[in-house]
Lab assay of single mutants.
Amino acid sequence: KELVLVLYDYQEKSPREVTVKKGDILTLLNSTNKDAWKVEVDDRQGFIPAAYLKKL
């Protein structure tokens, strides 16, 4: 599985998104959309803007 590093805090703005903190390391589920990547956070799945993430 692929991991990503969170570069900036992000507060979810819709039910399809998830809230993350800078420095979190998350499982990347889908990065086919260049604008928003799907990740898993504490058994929740949701989207975060790709600009907030860096592949490890």
Rank of each mutant, 00 (worst) to 15 (best):
I48Y: 01
F47G: 02
S14K: 07
V39G: 00
L26H: 05
A36P: 03
T19W: 05
D35Y: 15
E40P: 01
P49D: 04
D43R: 11
K54C: 15
T32D: 15
K1F: 12
V20K: 00
Y10K: 00
K38W: 14
L28N: 00
Y10D: 01
Y10P: 01
I48E: 02
E12Q: 15
A36L: 15
E2S: 12
T27L: 14
R44T: 06
K55Y: 08
T32A: 13
L53E: 01
D42W: 09
N33W: 09
A50M: 06
L29H: 03
P15Y: 08
E12C: 14
V18P: 02
R16P: 06
A51N: 12
G23F: 04
K54T: 09
T32F: 10
Y8C: 15
G23T: 03
D9L: 04
E40M: 14
D9M: 04
L26W: 05
G23Q: 04
Y52N: 07
I25W: 03
K38L: 15
K54E: 11
T19N: 06
K34W: 10
L29K: 03
S14C: 10
Q11G: 07
A50L: 05
S14N: 14
L28W: 02
D24P: 00
E40H: 06
K55P: 09
S14T: 12
V18W: 10
L56Y: 08
Q45S: 10
V6M: 02
K22A: 13
Q45H: 08
V18M: 14
Y52W: 07
V39R: 01
G46E: 09
I25M: 05
T19L: 04
N30I: 08
R16Q: 14
E2A: 12
E17I: 05
A50S: 13
L7R: 04
L56P: 01
R44I: 08
K13L: 10
Y8K: 13
V4G: 03
A36E: 15
L56F: 08
K1G: 09
L53R: 01
L26T: 00
E17C: 09
R44S: 05
K34E: 11
K38R: 11
P49Q: 04
S14V: 06
D43Y: 09
A36S: 14
V4K: 02
V6Y: 01
E2T: 13
W37L: 01
P49L: 07
L29E: 02
V41N: 08
L28P: 00
S14Y: 10
E40G: 07
V18S: 02
A50G: 07
G23I: 02
P15C: 09
V39E: 00
E17N: 07
S31T: 09
L5Q: 07
D43H: 11
W37A: 00
K54G: 04
L28G: 00
G23L: 03
N30M: 09
S31C: 14
D24S: 11
S31P: 04
Y52H: 08
E17W: 09
K1Y: 13
V20W: 11
D35C: 15
I48S: 02
L26N: 01
Y8E: 12
F47T: 08
D42E: 12
T27Y: 12
K1H: 12
E17A: 08
I48K: 01
Q11K: 13
A36M: 15
P15Q: 10
L28D: 00
A50D: 02
L56M: 09
N33T: 07
T27R: 14
N33Y: 10
E40A: 13
Y8P: 00
L3P: 02
D35R: 13
E12T: 11
G46K: 05
N33V: 05
E12M: 15
T19V: 04
L56A: 03
Y52F: 12
K21H: 10
V6W: 03
V4D: 00
K1D: 07
D9A: 06
V4M: 01
Y52P: 01
L7H: 00
K22C: 07
K13T: 13
N30C: 14
D43Q: 11
L28Y: 02
D35P: 02
D42T: 07
Y8A: 14
V20P: 01
K55E: 04
L5W: 06
R44V: 07
K21S: 09
N30V: 08
V4E: 01
D24F: 07
V41P: 02
Q11W: 14
L29M: 06
D43G: 15
E12S: 15
D24R: 11
K54W: 10
L7G: 00
Y52D: 01
Y52E: 00
N30H: 07
L29N: 02
K13N: 09
T32G: 10
R44D: 03
V39D: 00
P15W: 08
Q45A: 11
T27G: 06
Q11Y: 15
L26Y: 04
V39M: 03
K34L: 11
A50Q: 06
E12K: 15
G23P: 01
K34I: 11
